[in-house]
Design a protein around this nucleic acid. Structure first.
Length: 345
DNA sequence: AATCTCCTCAACCGCTACGCA
DNA sequence: ATGCGTAGCGGTTGAGGAGAT
């Protein structure tokens, strides 16, 4: 677990990059790929540490980066994924093509977080303040909430760990198959983290549509999540289409998780929220409707949901049962593996 | 015009995960 | 099993710009 001493070296430049430095880095990577970041600065003639070079590249110089204002759709996705994943910016970034985790993180901290706070929504829990307040008045309710949160978090971590394991296994299998079938074939673009591959493909080299792309930029959250859901994830079929069906489906599923919160914001804010809940049918619809229905009733005491939520009228038993069903439904969907799928409540 | 305050975001820091010897 | 080197991640910082006074 040793720490890289590269940044501690004296004489290395820090701070903002000059256009000349950018040019050097860009030229070097286009020519040779980044290879080892540690040795790159010296080879490229830069007085920077490798870490600084890597960050500059991944956050700014990479050709597949989209800059400028976030679209309404992107904002929605960030909010919704944040509700599901928390501050896991890299995971969120995999669902926002051409956006970096750093950019998303900054945008969240400077814009979205404040906007949610302004709307009375806790940016951490993504719950409305009213709910927090009302739940705090009843001790048992509060305890139930905490318990459910802890259980959900535990289940989430467990599922993530399992997904990682499965992804790794599948990736290994796939890699072996590829090796057996055709060793010279261009590697398929999997949605698994592949840290070992650091060779860069130059534009117009090999496959015509290939571009310089960081390993992390090829990682998409969708497939990892789709596999346990049992949704086909044929990478080779879909890799030429970023908006493939599977990705869209899981995005729909993910995006629905906090639609209730966003719906609330809609009442007060502008049209950045307007497109929420406009998902269409398909496989994701079941998950979508489940989450919309349940999460709305579960978390928000406003609007049309008030009738279904029955704020203040529901017994603690119903509240508990609702939460139980809500979490179990999600867990059942996320966890399709019969061996380790455990009902939590 | 000068100063102050706030905001944004590129970059840095410190930590962890992972691969390899 | 252990230690080291490296890459990646998330939190934080601070320079510079924009707006307010």
């Amino acid at each position: 677990m040793g720490r890289s001493p590269c940044c501690d070296k004296a004489g290395l430049k820090k701070g903002p990059w000059t256009p000349e430095e950018d040019q050097k880095l860009l030229a070097y990577i286009e020519e040779h790929g980044h290879g080892s970041w540690r040795s790159l600065p010296e080879k490229a003639g830069l007085q920077r540490c490798g870490k600084s070079c890597r960050l500059r590249w991944t956050n700014y110089l990479r050709p597949d980066i989209k800059r400028g204002k976030f679209t309404v759709q992107e904002e929605q996705t960030i909010i919704q994924l944040h509700a599901l994943l928390g501050n896991r910016w890299s995971a969120i970034a995999t669902h926002l093509p051409k956006r970096t985790d750093n950019e998303i993180k900054n945008y969240w901290n400077t814009h979205l977080k404040k906007r949610l706070i302004k709307m009375g929504i806790d940016p951490v829990t993504h719950k409305h303040k009213n709910e927090t307040l009302s739940s705090s008045t009843g001790q048992s309710k509060n305890a139930a909430t905490l318990s459910h949160m802890a259980q959900w978090e535990s289940a989430r971590l467990e599922a993530e760990a399992r997904l990682a394991r499965e992804s790794k296994l599948l990736h290994l299998q796939h890699y072996q198959n590829n090796n057996n079938l055709n060793k010279s074939a261009a590697p398929q673009q999997h949605c698994f983290t592949q840290k070992t591959s650091t060779n860069w493909t130059k534009p117009n080299q090999g496959n015509g549509d290939q571009q310089l792309e960081s390993p992390t930029s090829t990682v998409t959250f969708s497939e990892n999540l789709l596999m346990p859901l049992g949704i086909p994830t044929d990478s080779s079929r879909n890799r030429n289409n970023n908006n493939n069906e599977s990705s869209a489906m899981i995005e729909l599923a993910v995006s629905s998780s906090t639609s209730s919160d966003v719906s609330l914001v809609k009442e007060h804010e502008h049209d950045w929220i307007r497109q929420i809940n406009c998902g269409s049918g398909g496989i994701g619809e079941g998950f979508t409707s489940l989450l919309i229905g349940d999460s709305v009733g579960r978390s928000l005491p406003t609007g049309k949901n008030e009738a279904t939520a029955g704020v203040g009228n529901e017994s603690e038993y119903n509240y508990y049962e609702d939460n139980k069903n809500y979490w179990n439904s999600i867990l059942n969907l996320v966890d399709s593996s019969p061996s380790d799928s455990a009902t939590m409540f």
